[in-house]
Simulated assay, not measured.
Amino acid sequence: MVSTIANVDVKQKDAEQALVVAISCSAVFEDADNGDVLGVGVAHPLMQALQSVNRQLVAANCAESLLFDVLLVTTDERRRRQSAGIVSSTRHYGLEVSRFCFSGREDFVESLLENQVQLFLSSEPEEVTLASQRGPMLLIDLAGVLSALLGRQTWSSPSEQLRVLLCGDDIITTTTAKSTPAAQHFWSQLGAMRGRFGVLDSPVSVLVMTAHGGRQNFADTLATLRSRGLNADEAHCLAGAPRGPVLELLRPHFLLGDVMWSS
């Protein structure tokens, strides 16, 4: 059974215009040793970065409707029993969460679809597997929900700028051949959101990295992204070089593509 609770402390976003992101409670909060307030998890800098983007969008245009609409999702019974603590901890840390969605593993994907989620993020491989139905790393699922696994390195990502890294090696095959309308809508919305800001000092940074292939493959990747309405702030062609040092330098909040954090 799916239970969705609106957060009365937060102004609800325009469901038709917002970019809906669901984040697993297991990534946002860790269990507290004592008291009702849960400890912050690996997704805390990500949550702050999403809020920074929304804050600057509204500052530039008070009527802005293209905003991140953030949901917290839980899939296990223990977390459901902590629902009061999750809500109060969200208030304690000042997190801008529109809705809380409590579901079981059997109706988890249904809960994402019901809430029109365009991107699901979790630190639990099992949850990403459920959402993607294609394996433990990021893929596009059959129902059109884009999903990504958050790594421990998310802790070191900046809290004032959202940094999204796209794996260019996966862009050509996934975006052109297998992309669902929902995924394409995500790319265009992210591109439109990035376009709200100038070249310098943007709270949204789109990064592209190709691990394999040469110059032509790299050019094809950038052209494909532009056709989806998304331009890159930084682009890196590794041509087989180790990815680990570049990942440490870029410090993305999450990876869209089949890139391993440790590689």
Rank of each mutant, 00 (worst) to 15 (best):
L50G: 06
M47I: 05
L50Y: 04
C62P: 09
S52A: 14
L38I: 01
G39P: 11
Q48W: 00
G41F: 06
L38P: 09
G35F: 06
Q51C: 08
A59W: 11
V58Q: 15
A59D: 15
R55P: 02
H44K: 05
A60W: 08
V40G: 06
A59K: 13
G39N: 15
V53N: 14
G39H: 09
A43S: 10
N54L: 02
A60H: 05
Q56I: 00
P45K: 05
A59C: 07
V40W: 04
S65A: 08
V42D: 14
A63G: 07
A43K: 08
A49S: 12
L66Q: 11
V53E: 13
L50S: 07
Q51A: 13
R55V: 00
G35C: 08
L67P: 06
Q56A: 00
S52V: 01
A49M: 12
Q48P: 02
D36E: 15
N61S: 09
D36T: 10
A59R: 12
P45Q: 13
Q48G: 00
N54Y: 08
L38Q: 06
A63P: 03
V37Y: 04
Q48I: 00
D36S: 10
V40D: 07
G35K: 01
A63Y: 09
G35Q: 07
M47N: 08
V37M: 05
G35V: 03
L57G: 01
V37E: 08
H44S: 03
G39R: 13
P45C: 12
Q56D: 05
L38V: 00
V40L: 04
A60T: 05
L57D: 02
Q56N: 03
Q56K: 10
R55Q: 13
L57Q: 08
V58H: 14
C62I: 14
L50D: 11
V53M: 10
N54C: 07
R55N: 10
V40H: 12
S52T: 02
S65W: 00
L57I: 01
N61H: 12
L38H: 07
V58N: 13
H44M: 05
V42E: 15
L67D: 11
D36Y: 06
M47D: 11
N61Q: 12
C62D: 15
Q56C: 00
L57Y: 06
P45S: 11
L57C: 08
A59I: 03
L50F: 10
R55K: 14
G41C: 12
Q51I: 01
A49V: 01
L38G: 02
A49P: 09
S65V: 04
L38Y: 10
V40N: 10
A63V: 04
G35T: 01
G41Q: 11
G39F: 05
L66E: 14
L66W: 06
V40S: 14
S52Y: 03
A63I: 01
V58S: 15
Q48E: 12
C62A: 12
